[in-house]
């Protein structure tokens, strides 16, 4: 029994020594893949980015896995959307992570909704209206202009944490912002012929996207935010789709596609797969620009195909 102590101690030492092997640069944790993509754009090779949620996952409901606590414990910076999107799971993780660098108000806590003009801020809070967020609709990243605001916040945060690399971060931010501006002109042109076109969505994820590109996304398969579709509500949606001549229904990876398909079948509309997060649908793994590019083209294509049909 005596001889078995030494290997045990060696293992213990190896365990304790392992975290020292962290790479150079800032260790950054982003809550969702869109913010992770922005952190990579701005941080370049000066940061190591890991993302907590999966692009196919419902961001309102995420399991607070213990492995996330470990990531947050070691992070130099946490990038979150804020506006209550992560409220159901992030506080429990931060409590476990005991990392003062990520405390609210610290330079290491980057809240991307800061500086974003929030839409749909409720006048009063009433859960009989469904899952309405106190700070407004949290899905602001679907508007590329807000992507710029978030990237700016991230760059500011990185500069405070790593002043020596600040020039690099600013240069990366400039490049990213210019690229977004160019693409934005292109995206607006692609969707310009569909100004005012009405689209049905499963959940109220898209007000920022709709506002930016002149679309109307006011009709949802959910009767209230976060409340599953009911037959009576779907019947009224079907009626409105028919009377308004709506041709496109958009569905995210974690939503019930069958419900959308059955509505589409009864109305002649087309179901288009969309996602809020890079990697949520095929062809969007590249990053934030690729994601918006996909959304604009997929929706434009579906609207055109719909218009071509009698």
């Amino acid at each position: 029994m005596k001889t078995s102590v030494r290997p045990f101690l060696l293992v213990l030492l190896a365990i304790l020594a392992s975290p020292a092997a962290a790479g150079a640069g800032l260790n950054v944790v982003a809550t969702t893949p869109d913010l992770g993509a922005l952190a990579r754009e701005v941080g370049g090779d000066r940061v190591e980015v890991s993302v907590l949620t999966k692009p196919t996952e419902d961001p309102h409901f995420v399991d607070a896995k213990p492995s996330f606590i470990v990531k947050l414990n070691r992070a130099d910076a946490l990038i979150e959307g804020g506006a209550d999107l992560e409220v159901g799971w992030l506080p429990a993780l931060l409590e476990g992570a005991r990392n003062d660098a990520l405390a609210a108000g610290s330079p290491g806590r980057v809240v991307c909704s800061r500086g974003v003009q929030m839409l749909e801020v409720p006048a009063n809070l009433d859960r009989s209206k469904g899952d309405v967020h106190a700070a407004g609709n949290p899905h602001f990243m679907t508007d590329p202009e807000n992507g710029k605001v978030a990237a700016h916040e991230i760059a500011e945060g990185f500069c405070t944490l790593d002043a020596a690399s600040c020039d690099t971060f600013r240069a990366n931010l400039d490049r990213f912002t210019r690229r977004l501006d160019e693409k934005l002109t292109e995206w607006k042109a692609v969707l310009s012929s569909h100004h005012g076109a009405e689209i049905v969505a499963y959940h109220n994820t898209w007000p920022y996207f709709a506002t930016r590109f002149g679309l109307t996304i006011n009709l949802f398969l959910e009767p209230k935010p976060g409340i599953p579709p009911t037959p009576a509500h779907l019947a009224s949606v079907i009626g409105r789709i028919k009377s308004n001549g709506v041709r496109v229904i958009i569905v995210e990876p974690y939503q019930n596609r069958k419900t959308a398909e059955s509505v589409a079948e009864q109305t002649g509309a087309t179901v288009v797969d969309v996602a809020q997060y890079p990697g949520g649908v095929e062809g969007t793994d590249g990053g934030y620009v690729e994601l918006i590019d996909y959304l604009v083209r997929a929706i434009a294509q579906a609207l055109e195909a719909g218009a071509a049909r009698p």
């Binding site: 003009q117 929030m118 839409l119 749909e120 801020v121 409720p122 006048a123 009063n124 009433d126 209206k129 309405v132 407004g136 109220n204 007000p207 709709a210 506002t211 930016r212 002149g214 006011n218």
Partner: peptide
């Protein structure tokens, strides 16, 4: 704040109003 947001703020979503809340 662009005028396009002003359109969104009058979108027919119940319980929605412009910030700041009263």
């Amino acid at each position: 704040v662009e005028e396009s947001y002003a359109e969104a703020l009058i979108a027919p979503v119940s319980a929605v109003t412009s910030p700041p809340a009263p």
